[in-house]
Write a protein that binds this DNA or RNA. Sequence first.
RNA 1: AACUAUGUAGCUCAGUUGGGUAGAGCAAUCGACUAAUCAUCGAUGGGUCGCAGGUUCAAAUCCUGCCCUAGUUACCA
Length: 961
Amino acid sequence: MESQYKSTLNLPDTEFPMRGNLAKREPDMLARWEEIGLYRKIREARAGRDKFILHDGPPYANGNIHIGHAVNKILKDVIIKSQTLSGKDAPYIPGWDCHGLPIELKVEAKVGKVGEKVTASEFRQHCREYAAEQVDGQRNDFKRLMVLGDWDNPYLTMDFKFEADIIRTLGKIIDAGHLHKGFKPVNWCSDCGSALAEAEVEYQDKKSVAIDVKFAFPDSQAIAAAFNVEVDKTVSIVIWTTTPWTLPANEAVSVHPELEYSLVLLKEADEVLLLATDLVDDAAQRYGLDADGYEVLGTAKGKAFGQTPDQSEAPFTVKHPFMPGKESGDKFVPVITGEHVTADSGTGSVHTAPMHGVDDYVVSNLYGVKSEEMLVDSQGNFIANPALEALELTGLSTADKGNFRVLGILNERGALVKKANITHSYPHCWRHKTPIIFRATPQWFISMNQAGLLDQAMNEVENTVEWRPSWGKARIEGMMNDRPDWCISRQRTWGVPIALFVHKETAELHPRTPELIAQVAERVEGAGIDAWFDLDPAELLGDEAGQYDKVVDTLDVWFDSGVTHTAVCMARDELEMPADLYLEGSDQHRGWFQSSLLTSVAAYGKAPYKTALTHGFTVDGQGRKMSKSIGNTVEPQKVINQLGGDILRWWVADTDYSGEMTVSDEILKRNADSYRRVRNTCRFLLANINGFNPATDMVSADELLPLDAWMVSYTERLQEKVIALYHNYDLKTLTKTLMNFCVSELGAFYLDVIKDRQYTCKADSLPRRSAQTALYHVAEAMARWIAPVLSFTAEEIWSALPAPVSGERVESAQLAEWYADFPQISASEFNDAYWRSVMAVKEAVNGALEKARNEKVIGASLGAEVTLFASDEIKSQLERLGNELRFVLITSKAQVVGLNEQGGDVTDVDGLRVAVTASADEKCERCWHHSDTVGKSEAHPTLCGRCVENVEGDGEVRHYA
RNA sequence: AACUAUGUAGCUCAGUUGGGUAGAGCAAUCGACUAAUCAUCGAUGGGUCGCAGGUUCAAAUCCUGCCCUAGUUACCA
């Protein structure tokens, strides 16, 4: 039955709902943000303040956002919002990477290939439209994550101005002397018909044919002599390769100078093979020979017969198994030495095709060995030339038929020693998933060394940039240390042109290149990249036009995104270069962190970021990477629609992002639970300051009850920690700190203790207003603490908070700064240490109460009376609370006696025993305390004296709690 | 294959200049309350600190080897 006195209580009351219903309500808040122009308002509010520049790395404008995108954007948003709360002017300009192959492939699927159904210019227009659509889609998803930014004015790498800035930056890099035209083997995808960047290559298992091939020495006697033996049979050096199709391009055989080689007599075949000594047995086994089927005749080091760099001519040549010589007759190739040769597998002798391998190219260069002609076209097919036609190779693909044809030829010529299938890891095109080849073509490079770029960049990495986590430095150093020159040219349509004029004969850049680049950039700024492709060279070069080629290669898209330091940070007034922070996934050590650093150092001699912060990848509950094929992906859209954005954001913050970030249904469920706890704590705060008007009801610092004063000062100190955690980007500790505050200090202690005072004291009494004052300060602070992470919930709280003393409340929690209106609490004996020890006593009492409860002695703790047998120290502490100790312990009576008195059970607290008895007194109908004063009032026979005083007297007095 | 990072209760994380029966929150279980109630309070159980060695009076913490997972690099010509 409901008590007639219930209406005399001050029970909690609030509109703030217990359940967030986030999925449904968040969009309304977002609409409000848009409506009031929140981002602009924040900019106005922070204008003139110290800046904090987090520069956004552009996601690629293709496809739906996945959980990794969400993690990245949310982390950025949390950091920016927290900096804004710290009073910084922290603009956020999101961007997108818009050029490149993936978009071309999508557009090709829709409108066909360039030159077939559409012109290049039309094709580019389609790409532009497609990219714009993708940007729109992703933008909506990002906004739904409650990420605040200048979404109306993002940067797009396909903006005309941006395209022009890319060309201008290239110009700066050329001015600084870093550009280099090379002819090198590069990763080449036959399906793309283009060179690939390192980052566009991924390794997968591939089945290949591995073959052992003989190259015969024309003079057996001579080579045998190098081994100090005599031989009258044919001697062949044997190479092992998994790419038979590269054999037509063979120009040399490499051996290691210090490795020992053997001449091995094959008894049955009656011939002699030259093999690395360490690999003789392996090879013999591979060839199916018994131990007595072969015999080592002699040994010699590689340098005894292979050409060394100090020799102008190779001491030995071997006959190519099938290619004809330049003029006529057989083709002979030199035996050379190289450090890249190993005795790990194969034969210890390496087939060397400078057109198709980087090592091959490098070692060949050393001896002036080179190919006359590239034998494979951009589609990966053998070209038409007399030798290849005679061998019936012309037109065949290196991927299949051409490869088999080479095997056939080797068989016909008797040069094939052994053929076997192997599976090995091999580079593949990350778009087509097909094996790539190495193919030498004329390409543009940013040289790492010709103007000292790598050294400068490494110096920035080492001395200027802060890497977080700290091992990021070692990681990027490791990656850059042995990186090759950056091949920036692509033979594609949808990209920014390498806008250069090259002399037809000398291949030199036009002498007025800087000026021409500036002119081209102007045109591109007005009309986009087509301004270059459509340009008649005569417009810029006049009469010279006939002598120059217009380069039509496009730039690697990593160059586009790499120069955002110029096209965005330097180009926009609100930004700065270098930026304070770049924040991306750890894979960007080889991607954007590096492309940005290299282009910036090349153009300006300095790093574009002060700090590079990285996060890991998301993995599933078992720690496996997410993949569509396993079906273990977690879609952010689904989380948003089922649990809400604040839950997703809480998960991001709660997870240690420096390593793998685990997500699963259970984990999200746990996070939703934690969220509800924080939410409910806030709800309780709001429900208990209902009707509290800070301007009129606030209790001054010196009037606050000691318990409330402690709560206020504790909160203020905790805020220092919260701010430090945000500044340190330590979000996982932040969520734990908030949670612990809600659970331990608030839920289990302070809030529980003050309920009695809140509910039963007179509404306008000092004891109640004192607690409300504390609750109010806590709520003001908490709303801000959670605002960067729980952006929706913070706004909800914000709108439920009363107007502050200082006047109007700003429109959004995101406009606020950390709470600064804490009353100044002077030091007293009721300090933090004091309340900590009271909490420990309370915990010990709880244990005793629970025991009594299990023995059915009591039910509610207010049905109990406790006696504390305490040491002198504890006794004197507890006695400071006078008869208010019972309120702290939430019992009807609490008395403290000396430790030497009899009775009580030992507890976890040293010097404290506790005895619990059921109260013999009547329970007050109103406050539920048991008291011998119940029944003493004729007017209120069911109330205790305290309640009578509160109901019709002046109200009880509290001194401490 | 190499390098880097990671591996502590069901979950998220603390704890490492070597030291005392390894902690927190959530979850689970049991209980209380019915005045935060699709809440709240209390109690309880739960860990071979990836595995195996080693150093030490003493190791989750130091050393060696190995394994798992993730990322990166390289690639078997």
